[in-house]
Design a protein around this nucleic acid. Sequence first.
DNA 1: AAATCGCCGTAGAAATTCTAAGGGTCATGC
DNA 2: GCATGACCCTTAGAATTTCTACGGCGATTT
Lengths: 297, 297
Amino acid sequence: MAVAPPRPKGPPLNALRAFEAASRLGGIAQAAEELCVTPGAVSQHIKALEAWAGVALFERRSQGVRLTAAGAELAPGFTAAFDQLGEAVGRLRAARGMRSINVAAMPSVALLWLSPRLAGLRAAIAPAEVAVFALEAPPGMTREPFDLSLFMRPEDDCPTGIPLSDGHMFPVCAPAMAADLHGPEDVRQMTLLHDQTWATDWQDWARACGVTLPTGRRGLSYSLYSLALSEAKAGAGILMGHDCLVEDALAAGELVAPFGARVASGRKLMLETSMTLQRSGQVQAIVGALSGEDQSR
Amino acid sequence: MAVAPPRPKGPPLNALRAFEAASRLGGIAQAAEELCVTPGAVSQHIKALEAWAGVALFERRSQGVRLTAAGAELAPGFTAAFDQLGEAVGRLRAARGMRSINVAAMPSVALLWLSPRLAGLRAAIAPAEVAVFALEAPPGMTREPFDLSLFMRPEDDCPTGIPLSDGHMFPVCAPAMAADLHGPEDVRQMTLLHDQTWATDWQDWARACGVTLPTGRRGLSYSLYSLALSEAKAGAGILMGHDCLVEDALAAGELVAPFGARVASGRKLMLETSMTLQRSGQVQAIVGALSGEDQSR
DNA sequence: AAATCGCCGTAGAAATTCTAAGGGTCATGC
DNA sequence: GCATGACCCTTAGAATTTCTACGGCGATTT
């Protein structure tokens, strides 16, 4: 008959959130990125939660973690609860009156596509402010405090999203280089510029065009698409261009597309909006500002 | 175009919980008690949340706080979310296999009613352990990690609860004092023993019995019912007895009920069980152990 | 066989969260 | 009218939690 602490304490809220994120994202490292902390912190949280509950939630394996049976059974409940909490937080944010819009975007999209449209966006939502966040992976819109999400990904991935590009890709290079290129096979001679996040682009393109690429050398690889694009402008090689990311450079004549053929990349530029923003009724204006003609540049 | 912190951070989870508790309980002090911290801590959390959102959630008034319009609109969403979270936590607790049962009870019930039945309860749920927590107010069963709740309160207050007493009250006193008492009116001569949490008991009884109590002197008042009961046994005065709390003393001959009449107190001993416990299928056995004959004493 | 990836463990550092104490306003009781 | 009690606020410092940093391990990849 213990009466010691006046109340039994529940589990730490943050540990719950860490578990939920890790279970949903399938890894401690991914959860850590979403929560903006180091993996060690997430690991500790989960361990603390397991100690509190007296149940193993994850099975530690060398190349990642797997949910145990108990963990798999419990996880959906937490995900649902945090979704609901996220929605409540969204309404709280909205109560302030949409004073600022948080935009999540891939680094390349933020730099190459959004940048010239930012002024238009800003004008469309004035007097609210815009904050752009470069993210590797698309955030869950109900969970995190983003209002707009701009990522290149399969259309099926986000049924609620609006496609803002056709999802085509095609080789591009500096105008000076284009003279030597008469057909797709000619790329075999060239230095191929790769983006690390889309490593299979060239292979996919080659398969679609019926061209066989030399397997040995792989050209240059960049962690940032915009870097690869700069190099392409400078004549360092030929880059696999994505419609929405290179259209400005093509329009400006900095790059050219030596071949007519465009193939589907499987990834379109998808625009997702938060519930919060949808309720505010500004989506229409924003989509207009983003998909309409660039007013600057 | 700020890109400074990789991600915009949501509001602190604990601040959300503090706001939810304060809104539901209608005060910072009550929330502080539920959360097991000082009111200052809750106050700070709420202030931090208001600063984050840029909206006033509470209106501070001299004798408490009131929700603002914005706060009132937002609060239900948070309550629902934390309810769901609480349920998920309940399932997490259950995953361990009900290794311990947390019982919440009023101090008086814990001491006078539960105490002699504890051995039976323990036997009924073996090998699980029992932990008893004395609480002033009944906890929300979905929210907090209690499995059993034993409080004296109006039956309507908890539709899901099981009444364990008739909710009758009647004066009791030491056997030696009873000789002078021939009818209800005689209590006017006596020292009345009061419990502070049920300050109107004597008035309610008097009204029901058609007796008018002297208004001036109010006898002795105790913060703990069990203390008042001890004093009554010692002959310090006459106490308003509640059926479930005095039955042991009556059976033992330590107290007697000088008048036959019993009046409804409006409060029965209500047993509430958590979802977690209900799912475990042990409720039947527990109710049996608690409402059956005491095996000890 | 070397490199890489993902997680763990620990210790110290950083940040959050809590308590304690003093002060104010309003209601209630004498 | 004045004391008393409720209730909340604020502030500073203390205690605790939480985070980072970094070396290590086991397994997969090159």
